[in-house]
Design a protein around this nucleic acid. Structure first.
Length: 601
RNA sequence: GGGGCUGUAGUAGAGUCGGUUACAACGCCGGCCUGUCACGCCGGAGGUCGCGGGUUCGAGUCCCGUCAGCCCCGCCA
């Protein structure tokens, strides 16, 4: 099917303005604009065209009496055609100014129009107000990315990285690239592997982070390193998690925890100021891990609202309600939240909340509605008046409040109630999008016990230094040692984290032993780091921010996919390119690889 | 590996108790319209109801399976 070629040559036309940049200041000037047709409104005579580029939209006016030739050409124009126009900026006639538009005071009286390229009718309207299923958007991502909302996100993302680079440069950081084809490391996430053709049977791993290399750069004396870098983890996806993601990765020498936190919080404050104009006060709040778990049940508390957790173990110990008493007796705990004024929740609401805590392993959710007559609750009968009074007092329970309790192991109680707290904050509208509450979480445990593997695993990673005062604990009670680790949490989201590293080879060896990694294995996996530590490694530490999550919050996006140009689906595929895909037998042969599953027909 | 939600013209939706030819909107095509701005008016085209099987005289609708997208648990140092 042959189409009449409609395209005009660009010729020697030079664009003078972005569409979104024309204003009253340009009135009377000759301009040349180029962009995409957002919409054409044909009034029989007069034709209006919305011309769009990345900076915004300009209204073109084509009058048949003034320029019959351009008007005739405009008749052929359709949505998403690529058009260039020359014309005069003129004020819109009295009463036709559009205050909703940035360029709404003016329009372009077109004298000449060139159709640079035609377009098929796109599969969906490129308006921000049109909802389109995400799989359709991802398949035609190049069109989706043409929508103003997504362009705004990408531009803001650029502003973030630009601000970060400027700041880090001023602070003496050097951006140094590290390998993408590197070595698989145990611990941590599943690696993405790349087969080596030259070394048949061997594999590279894509980096989960440049961790070891940035430490080596400190040993090499670069003093301050940074990199905005892709990292890869072959784990399942979430709304805020992609298998390839970007970190703002930093490391510096001759510093301790407070030095790192200070430099980094100032960077974040600057980013907020320069990208969305929000003043963030530094220094930011700090809270130990222990306090966060006690008050909020999680290590990434959302501080935009209260709803804090209260532990009632000592009150309900030995009480008549077996569920509570047993939880305490078995080494667990009982905690509660007081949702002020929520006694109006329906039975269904409460059932839903119960289902919610069950996701995190809680066996149930006990609740109490505070009424004029006291407790209205299925569990009221199990408690003595004294116990009721003590619980009311501990929770500051008033008429109209809703009390919710979980009794379980310490970890399940904390996590389920902590998540319930976050859930309620959203549900009750307490978490405002334009409220930014930062908090550093510090003094994480160094190790945690993995019951399945019957060994300690690093809470942060195996190169994290213990607190100086806890060094002796490594020999006596390693589970009690705290780490020089810190996470920056914003509105319940961990946006960055890091630690001071071990620069002493003997302590590093001790860590590996505690983690059940033998000398031989350690030498094989991390030998190069252990060796490097023996050649004058300076004290050093750093951290990495998740750029995607940060931009997600700055743009108010609900999904990480809205701030990544070409994201993957939840099954880690790319609907645009079709990746991952099969490869030729010849390619496999070169890589010394034989498949154990048959290719699809 | 597991739980949940969704899938109907290009797009996003409605579709009753299983019953005639699957609706109206936006978009698209044609016509009209000289100040609109999510322009308006008239007309038209456009459907493998995700896919496969089953129940039934009859399935978009009920059942089973499967695929895809999304949210979550596990996982993510």
């Amino acid at each position: 099917m042959e189409e009449q070629p409609l395209n005009d040559a660009l010729g020697n036309w030079k664009r003078t303005h972005y569409c979104g940049d024309i204003s009253s200041a340009d009135i009377g000037n000759e301009v040349c604009l180029m962009g995409w047709v957002q919409r054409r409104r044909d009034h029989g005579g007069l034709i209006f065209i919305y011309l769009r580029d990345r900076e915004g939209i300009a209204q073109l006016a084509l009058d048949p009496d003034r320029d019959p030739e351009a008007h005739e050409k405009a008749d052929k124009v359709r949505n998403e055609y690529v058009v260039a126009v020359k014309g005069t900026i003129s004020p819109r006639p009295e009463g036709t100014v559009n205050p909703k538009m940035k360029t709404g005071e003016v329009e372009v009286e077109v004298s000449e129009l060139r159709i640079l390229n035609v377009s098929k009718t796109p599969p969906f309207m490129l308006d921000d107000h049109v909802d389109v299923a995400e799989n359709i958007r991802l398949k035609h991502r190049y069109l989706d990315l043409r929508r103003p909302a997504l362009q705004k996100n990408m531009i803001l993302r650029h502003q973030v990285t630009k601000t970060v680079r400027n700041y880090l440069d001023e602070q003496g950081f050097l951006e140094i690239e590290t390998p993408v084809l590197t070595k698989s490391t145990p611990e941590g996430a599943r690696d993405y592997l790349v087969p080596s053709r030259v070394n048949g049977g061997n594999f590279f791993a894509l980096p989960q982070s440049p961790q070891l290399f940035k430490q080596l750069l400190m040993v090499s004396g670069y003093d301050r390193y940074c990199q905005i870098v892709k990292c890869f983890r072959d784990e399942d996806l979430r709304a805020d998690r992609q298998p390839e993601f970007t970190q703002i990765d930093c490391e510096m020498s001759f510093v301790d925890t407070n030095d790192v936190m200070t430099i980094m919080e100032n960077m974040i404050a600057r980013v907020f100021k320069e990208t969305i104009g929000v003043e963030v006060t530094a220094p930011m709040a700090r809270m130990t891990y222990a306090e966060a778990m006690d008050r909020f049940g999680v290590d990434n508390p959302d501080l935009r609202f209260d709803l804090e957790l209260t532990e009632l173990s000592s009150i309900v110990e030995g009480c008549g309600f077996k569920v509570f008493a047993d939880a305490v007796k078995n080494g667990g705990m009982v905690k509660a939240i007081n949702a002020k004024g929520c006694a109006t929740f329906s039975r269904k609401d409460l059932d839903d909340l119960t289902e919610f805590v069950k996701i995190y392993g809680a066996k149930g959710l006990a609740w109490v509605k505070m009424t004029e007559e006291g407790w209205q609750s299925p569990i009221a009968k199990f408690f003595t008046p004294e116990e009721l009074e003590k619980i009311n007092q501990a929770l500051d329970a008033q008429v109209g409040d809703l009390l919710m309790f979980v009794a379980d192991s310490t970890s399940i109680t904390n996590e389920s109630l902590g998540r319930l707290r976050g859930h309620l904050g959203q549900k009750l509208g307490l978490a405002k999008k334009d409220d930014y509450q930062f908090v550093w979480i510090t003094d994480f445990p160094l190790l945690e016990w993995d019951g399945e593997a019957k060994r300690h695993v690093a809470v942060h990673h195996p190169f994290t230094a213990p607190r100086d005062e806890d060094l002796a604990l490594l020999d006596t009670d390693p589970g009690k040692a705290c780490a020089k680790a810190y996470d920056l949490v914003l509105n319940g989201s961990e946006i960055g984290g890091g630690s001071i590293r071990i620069h002493d080879q003997s302590i590093q060896s001790k860590m590996f032993n505690l983690l059940g990694i033998g000398d031989e294995e350690a030498q094989e996996k991390f030998g190069f780091l252990l060796d490097a530590l023996e050649y004058g490694a300076p004290p050093h530490g750093g951290l990495a921010f998740g750029l995607d999550r940060l931009v997600m919050i700055l743009t108010g996006s609900d999904s990480i996919r809205d701030v990544i140009a070409f994201p993957k689906t939840q099954k880690a595929t790319c609907l645009l390119s079709g990746a991952p895909g099969e490869v030729d037998d010849k390619q496999l042969q070169e890589l010394s690889i034989r498949l154990r599953i048959r290719k699809k027909e």
